[in-house]
Amino acid sequence: MKKRKLKYLLAGGIVVAALAGMIYSGVQESMVYFYTPSELVQKKDAVQGKSLRVGGMVVERSIRWDPQTLLLTFQLTDGQGTVFVRHKGTAPDLFKEGAGAVVEGTWTPEGFFRSSNIMAKHSEEYKPPAHPETLESKKELFKSILKEGKP
């Protein structure tokens, strides 16, 4: 009976140690769900033609939208690199200038990113609009800019 208890204790210890070790080493390694624009600019020859995702902030005043051809173009930036994106179709409501977005698609030889899917990435902040915070008022501002940009 005592041997059995020891066995379970030992097993529990190994499991906890293995989990802790993995989580500890996992924190140090960073995997990416999407490339940042500057990474893409650096690697663009290696990733040409491969399907991948790019995430960044939509550059202000960069959105152009043609309702006839449904062609949407904009720029994504991470502060260092900038990528031109072309998208056929509509974008989600939360997609706007100055906000984060992730696009799926391929890097083309012509030097732009052909997107097949736009996903708006929003922050974990939840606030009512009346909140007198600079970030919020800024977002309101972008909304009005967006309206000017979209005919």
Binding site: A11, I14, V15, A18, L19, M22
Partner: peptide, 18 residues
């Protein structure tokens, strides 16, 4: 791929014990 190998190794250890 070292972090994936670590994950595989960790998984193996845990389930070889449990």
């Amino acid at each position: 791929v070292s972090h994936w190998l670590k994950l595989l190794g960790g998984f193996d250890v845990i389930f070889l014990v449990v």
